[in-house]
């Protein structure tokens, strides 16, 4: 029997985020019926993009505007969709939004959940994720009627698989969307000045103690601007006040999988690696060729990052 799989689509200002496509590719591996759950954008506007990666059903889950940002309401809306369409697995991104939504769904229906997956086998119900601060890969067997899977952004290369999709509407019965004891006062999404999201960008240029001060961090942001990259930081750089905590990459910061990670003046501690090990390409710039990062990267430059970065920015 063909399985029905639901995919929670993340959008940004009505546009689909690129990182959804790799997730759709992952979910579509065994040619199931793919349902895209669209909660906060015009489903029709996303149709073409979703079709080109293999979605056959687009479920327009329209929520009352005042409840769109409420993760408790969203969780219940997804649960309604799971029931309505006989869904056996739900995929969502392990982004800040996903971390606030997927576990709510799993908890409410007592379903198994693995966050930050980068491999899923729905024939055997096996998934792979990292454990022990990114030091091991765990293969986990799931049992249950509905599996909930958080997918690590950028971990899977999207592959086009054109289909044509039908738009279905899921009317939410207001009575079932309760938010007991929980109220949204404000959601951060409205801030237009927000920096590019580390978890989802293609390129990250990160600095550590070797950047020496906060001013030198602007060298990184200038370069990042040209590269359409985000700036990352080691914990030392964050603790020194050179970069905000939200830029920290590592075990106690963000876990990222960009296409390219440029590490400037950071040594590559175990805890830092825990956050960027799965980057496709790592380029390290460090004055010390014995730094751990230099022997665990794809390209290394033994030089002063403060000299290389401005030159690089100029060429971009």
């Amino acid at each position: 029997m063909m399985k029905n799989i639901g995919i929670i689509i993340e959008t940004d200002n009505g546009k689909i985020k690129e990182t959804n496509f790799g997730m759709i590719t992952l979910a579509g591996a065994n040619k199931p019926q793919l349902f895209a759950f669209v909660m906060d954008a015009d489903a029709r506007a996303l149709k073409e993009d979703l079709e080109s990666f293999g979605i056959t059903k687009i479920v327009d889950i329209s929520l009352p505007p005042d409840q769109q940002n409420n993760p408790m309401v969203r969780a219940q809306a997804i649960i309604n969709a799971i029931k309505e369409f006989n869904i056996c697995a739900v995929f969502g991104l392990s982004t800040a939004m996903g971390k606030d939504l997927l576990p709510r769904i799993a908890a409410l229906i007592e379903a198994p959940l693995i966050m930050d997956c980068f491999h899923v086998d729905l024939e055997q119900n096996l998934v792979k994720t990292s454990q022990y601060s990114g030091k091991t890969i765990a293969t986990i067997k799931l049992t249950g009627d509905v599996l909930i899977l958080g997918v690590r952004p950028n971990a899977i290369e999207p592959i086009k698989a054109p289909e044509s999709a039908q738009i279905l509407e899921l009317k939410q019965d207001g009575i079932h969307l309760v938010s007991k004891g929980f109220r949204v006062i404000r959601t951060g999404g409205a801030d237009k000045s927000k920096p590019i999201d580390l978890v989802e960008v293609d390129v990250i240029i990160a600095g550590g103690r070797g950047m020496k001060n906060g001013e030198n961090f602007t060298l990184l942001s200038e370069c990042a601007e040209k590269l359409k990259a985000a700036v990352g930081a080691s914990r030392v750089a964050v603790d020194s006040g050179w970069a905000p905590y939200s830029m920290q990459v590592g075990q106690t910061g963000e876990k990222v999988s960009p296409r390219v990670y440029i590490a400037c003046g950071l040594s590559g501690s175990i805890q830092h690696f825990a956050g960027m090990k799965t980057a496709r390409m790592v380029i390290a710039i460090n004055t010390d060729e014995n730094a751990a990062i230099m022997s665990n990267c794809d390209y290394y430059v033994k030089a002063d990052a403060l000299e290389i970065i401005p030159k690089l920015t100029k060429l971009l």
Partner: peptide, 26 residues
Amino acid sequence: STASMSIVELEPLGQTRKPKEITGDA
């Protein structure tokens, strides 16, 4: 519960990168 998650295998996340040096002046 009928729902469960169990680890069937753990593997070390090996170091697979083969670093190449980029040389020259800045």
